[in-house]
């Protein structure tokens, strides 16, 4: 167990700069998720913490010790790879025991550690199988077992669930979270899936283009996104972000429709943000044309059109409408987000 500090970390491949001075502070035992679109540098940052990529600038410290020049094996970390990276020619037992075998651990300790990890992960019956004989979820568990047996100070996960089907992903998500809470090991987890980030993290770090857009607790990011990028990235279905201008009668979007504004709205707001789930059906609302109705059972998502502007709403009610029909919706004024011309959140 340990803290991890990333200070002004830089990474360049040749002349291309991947990370532009990134700062992350991770407390002992914390579960941190690095999230962002493909190519935002999140995996690179993880690999720099693991020691698989060198650090072009700044410093990374694990448990207070700067590890910039410490080889991976001496950083006391364990990593779970996206493709699991199980050794195909070794059985599950050999895969999990490999690091101890290299460290010349006594056979009985090795076996005891493997058994302990297998018990935690429910792999007891599979110890003599080869990776090829396992399902995706089982391989995933073996990869975690390989990490657990080493009692590392930090677990690193590099998009570990992206090769699993949707149902298994949800199951493994809670398994990983539960395991982490049981072991209490500091964990850094990379994903591009914001739902994974929201459900698992103590702290989310949203990255984009080699910079950190915002970091904080999942609900803090959901409630108060610092800028347009985070607003659009966190939350599913994504927040509606409508460009327009503030007038004294409301927020005017290109179609001419006036959306209601909260009192004392800043006059320089250039983007109006409202989450689909924060809208209600109301006769007092603004009228749009239905483009699409998508019932999911628990709620109904409706896509509306205001001229060229498209707005999505998610309603508990079962909306009876067909494309082309009119529908009136009302944004919840307490939950409207306003962003300035530079994309930054405006205080309201």
């Amino acid at each position: 167990m340990a803290t991890v500090s990333v200070r002004q970390a830089l990474k360049s491949f040749g002349t291309t700069r991947i990370l532009h001075g990134v700062d992350v502070e991770i407390a002992d035992g914390e579960f941190v998720v690095l999230v962002g679109p493909s190519g935002c540098g999140k995996s690179t940052l993880l690999r720099m913490i693991a020691g698989l990529e060198n650090i072009s600038g700044g410093e990374i410290a694990i448990d207070g010790r700067v590890v910039n020049n410490v080889p991976p094996k001496d950083r006391d970390i364990a990593m779970v790879f996206q493709n699991y990276a199980l050794y195909p020619h070794m059985t599950v037992r050999q895969n999990m025991a490999f690091s101890m075998k290299l460290a010349k651990a006594p056979a009985d300790i090795m076996e005891a550690e493997v058994q302990r990890a297998a018990k935690i992960l429910g792999l007891d019956a599979l110890l003599d199988r080869y990776p090829r004989q396992l399902s995706g979820g089982q391989r995933q568990r073996v990869a975690m077992g390989r990490a657990i047996v080493r009692h590392p100070q930090v677990f690193l996960f590099d998009e570990p669930l992206s090769n699993l089907d949707a149902k298994l992903r949800v199951q493994m998500r809670s398994e990983i979270r539960e395991l982490q809470q049981r072991l209490g090991t500091t964990t850094i987890y990379v994903t591009h899936d914001q739902i994974e980030a929201m459900t698992m993290a103590d702290q989310i770090v949203v990255m984009n283009g080699g910079r950190i857009e915002q970091s904080g607790a999942p609900l803090a990011l959901y409630d108060k996104p610092a800028n347009l990028f985070v607003a659009g990235f966190i939350g599913s279905p994504a927040m509606n972000l409508l460009p327009g201008t503030v007038t004294d009668r409301g927020f005017r979007i290109p179609s001419g429709t006036l959306l209601p504004l909260p009192p004392h709205a800043p006059a320089n707001a250039a983007t109006y943000g409202i989450r689909p789930e924060h809208m209600s059906l109301s006769e007092d609302g603004v009228e749009g044309t239905i483009v699409l109705v998508e019932p999911t059972g628990s709620e109904t998502q409706v896509t509306l059109r205001f001229g060229e502007t498209v707005l999505t709403g998610a309603f508990r009610e079962r909306v009876q409408g067909r494309p082309g029909d009119k529908l009136r919706v009302l944004p919840d004024l307490d939950l409207v987000h306003l962003f300035g011309p530079d994309g930054a959140r405006l205080p309201s």
């Binding site: 693991a50 020691g51 698989l52 080889p71 991976p72 094996k73 970390i77 364990a78 990593m79 790879f81 996206q82 493709n83 990276a85 199980l86 050794y87 490999f98 690091s99 290299l102 460290a103 390989r146 080493r150």
Partner: peptide
């Protein structure tokens, strides 16, 4: 041979 196997081995201390 996938490079990730070598990375895993590197972390395993090989």
């Amino acid at each position: 041979i996938p490079p990730s196997l070598y990375e895993a081995a590197l972390l395993d201390g090989a």
